[in-house]
Design a protein around this nucleic acid. Sequence first.
DNA 1: ACCTGAACACCGTTCAAGT
DNA 2: ACCTGAACACCGTTCAAGT
Lengths: 230, 230
Amino acid sequence: MTKKPAGSARRDDSLSRERIIDASIELLDTHGERGLTFRALSENLATGPGAIYWHVDNRHDLLVAACDAIIARTVCALKSDVKPKAAIRALALAMFDAIDAHPWVGSALTRAAGQLPVVRILERIGQPVRALGVPDSAQWAVVSALLSYILGVSAQNAANAHLARELNADRTGFLDDVASAWSALDANDYPFTRSVAGQLRAHDDREDFLSGIDLILLGIESAHGKRKRA
Amino acid sequence: MTKKPAGSARRDDSLSRERIIDASIELLDTHGERGLTFRALSENLATGPGAIYWHVDNRHDLLVAACDAIIARTVCALKSDVKPKAAIRALALAMFDAIDAHPWVGSALTRAAGQLPVVRILERIGQPVRALGVPDSAQWAVVSALLSYILGVSAQNAANAHLARELNADRTGFLDDVASAWSALDANDYPFTRSVAGQLRAHDDREDFLSGIDLILLGIESAHGKRKRA
DNA sequence: ACCTGAACACCGTTCAAGT
DNA sequence: ACCTGAACACCGTTCAAGT
């Protein structure tokens, strides 16, 4: 009689891993990584901290689970029948946007080495890399380069968002500060950094990210290309 | 009369930023990032926590300063008159080795966006990229791709070391666990991940890292190459 | 100027006790 | 099986008070 209704919105009072993860995501989105606290969480869920430990191993487990929920959604939303290079680009951009929307995911991914969320991404890179004709022996190196780059930029962006929030509450102001600090560096020791300080303000993170992906794709082609019409 | 002796080893009892940073590095190297505690630090230095705050803004400041000390040493030890591509490779490897020796540096770098330690690396990438003949308009994209990749792998390696320490106290055991978890994944959903699970145990992180750098360098050449003898 | 160390406002995690 | 909530063992940071 009281079977779970197939719909979604049924407000069940009992605790569950899923409800805990949803509440965690909300906390993380609104207050950043440091906002995920067993005390805040148990208040939002109207329980004690002990109750949460019944469904979840520890804070790290919870963070990875929340991260995985976001990654799973993101990966599932991708179209599957596209050409390999387009697929890699689409995945990369989807990741970038997901982490832009949930900065804490960037740092969580770094700490989830080899675990489910990372594997989801790995798989979505590996399949098109295979399709690209990269030989078996080189696949791991190629895929892990792409993965490292994607995770690296993600973590970086997450850290930037975190810093901007803490220091200035304003991202542009943060970049301005960095740009003027760079301009004030010693001209002999830091010629390059000084020369790009101006570009810093104007640049588009998302575009830079994508041109990094394209650079790696070019490298892959040049190293393992099928050279179709040769 | 009591001028500072020019030598180094004079054991001065008074606190200084430098002594605090040295003690921090020792703590971080022996006990990981979580080992850096104002209590442990003040015990090692035979003072109270308040004394440390006189020389250092806060924990984050301290971590970045410790990180910068390592990066500065690493960058200074590099030879300066080498060909551009060799210089980039040498810098990348030096960073990899430094972070391998001090895993906490990897995560510290991520949180030091735009600050001195990162700028040191940026500059050392930028100069050879210029020498490679990459046009001004593309320099930022190229350099930030390399930087992101290097920092990304660094953070990743740091996290692995941290995880291995926490879970198993043994790095090989950690990789074994991941490899067997990957092998147990669903064959339909994760064909690629399953296929590389075996390679995971055998692979050499350092080599993989370098082939990623080479991939990016290839891409740079192919996009902006001087094609000397064409 | 520099140091002391108690005190404040937090943390994650555990565990006896309840239902 | 699942939840409660007090208690434990920590944190970073501050600040009146000392020298």
